[in-house]
Design a protein around this nucleic acid. Sequence first.
RNA 1: GGAGAGGUGGCUGAGCGGCUGAAAGCGCCCGCCUGCUAAGCGGGUAUAGGGUUUAUAGCUCUAUCGAGGGUUCGAAUCCCUCCCUCUCCGCCA
Length: 425
Amino acid sequence: MIPLKVIRQEPDRIRAALADKGESPALVESILEQDRAVRALLGEVEGLKAQRNTVSQEIGRQKRAGSDAAENIAAMAALADRVKALDKRLQEQQAALELDLLQVPNAPHPSTPAGSTAADNRAVSSWGEVTQPGPEAKDQHDLLVDLALVDFAAGARITGQGFPLYTGRGAKLERALLNFMLDLQTAEHGYLEVLPPLLASRASTLTTGQLPKLEEDMYRVGQDDLFLIPTAEVPLTNLHRGQVLEEAALPLKYVAASACFRREAGSYGKDTRGLLRVHQFNKVELVKFVHPDHSYDELESLREDAETVLRRLGLPYRVVELCRGDLSFAAAKCYDLELHAPVTGRWLEVSSCSNFEAFQTRRGHIRFRRSDTGKLDYPHTLNGSGVATPRLLAALLENGQQPDGSVRLPAALQSYFGAEVIEPL
RNA sequence: GGAGAGGUGGCUGAGCGGCUGAAAGCGCCCGCCUGCUAAGCGGGUAUAGGGUUUAUAGCUCUAUCGAGGGUUCGAAUCCCUCCCUCUCCGCCA
């Protein structure tokens, strides 16, 4: 959330940020206007309350002294009604303002490239050798099906399209990937492993920024008004909602493997083949709460932590920095990691590493006390996938397939999987 | 699902209609004291918003004792609803 004070002081900057993210800058006008209305009411009602407080104290003194307070009591009874009516109007006005404030996206960091679509994203780096597929090479879908790693039809039978069922070696490979990534992040990068709830409350999804705008993208359990998490970012970030953290404890680093649920509303018909876009998938997520003075250094190190996964697996990838228009609602800066899938012929996004600055911690009232000023301040939150498995698996298979139809697994994975090669049936 | 207990500042924990933004302790900050450390002594220390202001300094007003309603001139304190935590019972992987 962008503080009201900032919108008042730098309306042009916020208008620009809205435009950058493809939203109407008119929201700023609406907010400023509502802010004026709130402040006018506030002045009025607070004056009346001040009067009420002083006279009420006077009544207390009169009663204790045994003198007659009837006149004051009658006057305050009349005033109480006015206060109540004004308070109601004030509350409504403040609620309206709050609603608008929650719609304001985070402002892009000045270093982020200008642009509106993915075509404007900036190439940062690449790693590994992009391979040319042989004439007989299969794409991820056919490999998954022919090697009997995933039974798409069974998943569809149970739930519907986009809910893959991993079978046999596929299930074990999925487990191997998750274990490998968790072990790497906990043992080598110092993250604390967490196994979080998969349902989150309205308050939690509001903190991370899925609500209020992206409600349609989540699965909702209406009976209890809970949401299936679209990413473990939601539970991990909300782990400290409403708390005051110890400055010395920063950075706090958490990692979780979890199922993620996304309705992918509006993207029907896109990428339906194989594992490129599914409604339920597994992901290892990294979340850090960091001191605001070093959050951009922490973003680089988070990205390194995620990249390490791909390097250990020997898979060619590239890093792109998202342009302003491609940034998510809550992000100030974001790097995507994309694996190369030689047969599909595309770069597959497997991780987004973002700095949200104080956007989420403000919404979630997550704070820490600064030793330099003695004041409360908001830590910055960062998160990144490390990484999501469906496209990882897709790239792994396409890159590892051999002319005989088998798939050679990266050395890092072999002990987890228990074999070096997935043989054809 | 049933019964009971409870939710107060960074933490522990008093208060149970006005003198309480809130005792006391811990923690933290400043100072004093003592070869150093430990201990001791004195003082300070909530958050948000409005107004004033060059000011994120001061001053001042308002709000906040889980959330929301109500009673009252006045609510942390009384009443109602909800949420959460704990204990016991039931059910269950």
